[in-house]
């Protein structure tokens, strides 16, 4: 497997602000790669530099073995970029929209219509883009990005502003895109999205990458305790302490939570006492990783 994207020490400043401050990573062909971070972390600027929309102040990018800057018309058909949902020609229907974009790549109208079907918008083909819902517009814009069958697909916050059902539908679509062998690079500020989709994530904050790795490995690397909760009153606090050893125990009146690094033993002990009412087990998440890396709570609007 060769590298689809190689990013070496790229930098970009706007005035005093270092939007991207020495970012390096590689994306392997066929990989689903995520750049995760709060708004303003520098994700979008990083993506734009890789796509060739911006010239980095320093550093180097290789996209499919070529430099994306300056504009490269032989490279562009090999990449597919989904910008925000609003990047559509005004007053055109969904079908006219995708046919227009497809034709810019020399793609047939038949193929364009197939893409419309693929993202489940055939029944909205004659609807003007102004009348599409947020989720439909997102799916259309992804279809437009894919119509010319690109090798690398860039998605910038593809699910922001969608309702949970629309998000899950879109996730299925994105997984399918990747399963077909395309390299997918996605930025998101949703931790659950990165965990659900990406093979590897780069956690980014304030223009720098803090850590890169598979989500599960990042979480495991934290060595964070597992949080086991049961309904309050199921077990007395001192009994809980007795069976959990050095674990941290808290009770907010609704749930009694035991934070332990030895969840198997605690669960067995609870089961022995038939004290499993309202049981929930929660491992650490990327949120904990972010908290651990930055010392700050993860907030989308950061």
């Amino acid at each position: 497997m060769s590298e689809a994207i190689i990013v070496r020490d790229i930098r970009k400043s706007y005035g005093q602000t270092r939007a991207v401050d020495g970012v390096s990573f590689e994306v392997t062909e066929g990989e689903f790669f995520g750049i995760l971070g709060p708004n303003g972390a520098g994700k979008t600027t990083t993506l734009e530099i890789i796509e060739g929309l911006r010239k980095p102040d320093g550093g180097e990018v290789q996209l499919l073995g070529m430099s994306p800057w300056p504009r490269h018309t032989s490279l562009l058909p090999r990449i597919g970029v989904q910008l925000q949902a609003s990047s559509f020609f005004e007053r055109l229907t969904a079908r006219e929209q995708i046919r227009t974009w497809a034709s810019l790549y020399g793609v047939s109208t038949r193929r364009a219509d197939e893409m419309l079907e693929l993202v489940g918008l055939t029944d909205k083909a004659n609807t003007r883009i102004e009348k599409l819902s947020g989720g439909q517009a997102q799916r259309l814009s992804i279809a437009c990005a894919l119509a010319h069958d690109p090798e690398v697909v860039f998605l910038d916050e593809p699910t922001s502003g969608l309702d949970p059902q629309a998000r899950r539908n879109l996730w299925d679509l994105l997984r399918e895109i990747n399963r077909q062998g395309r390299t997918v690079v996605l930025t998101t500020h949703y931790l659950d999205e990165a965990e659900a989709l990406c093979e590897r994530v780069a956690i980014m904050d304030r223009g720098k990458i803090l850590q890169i790795g598979p989500p599960a490995a990042l979480v495991r690397g934290l060595d964070a305790p597992t949080r086991i909760s049961v309904e309050s009153g199921t077990i007395a606090a001192h009994d809980a302490r007795a069976l959990a050893g050095d674990a941290e125990i808290s009770d907010d009146g609704v749930s009694l939570t035991i934070a332990t690094r030895d969840p198997a033993r605690v669960l067995a002990a609870l089961a022995e006492r038939s004290a499993l009412r309202g049981l929930s087990v929660r491992g650490a998440t990327l949120e904990d990783v972010f908290l651990n890396l930055t010392g700050r709570e993860y907030r989308d609007d950061d």
Partner: peptide, 18 residues
């Protein structure tokens, strides 16, 4: 999900080109 997504490499672009 359907199998209509082509695998990369099978070109949907006409080779007649630019």
């Amino acid at each position: 999900m359907t199998s209509k997504l082509d695998t990369p490499g099978r070109s949907v672009r006409t080779p007649a080109g630019a």
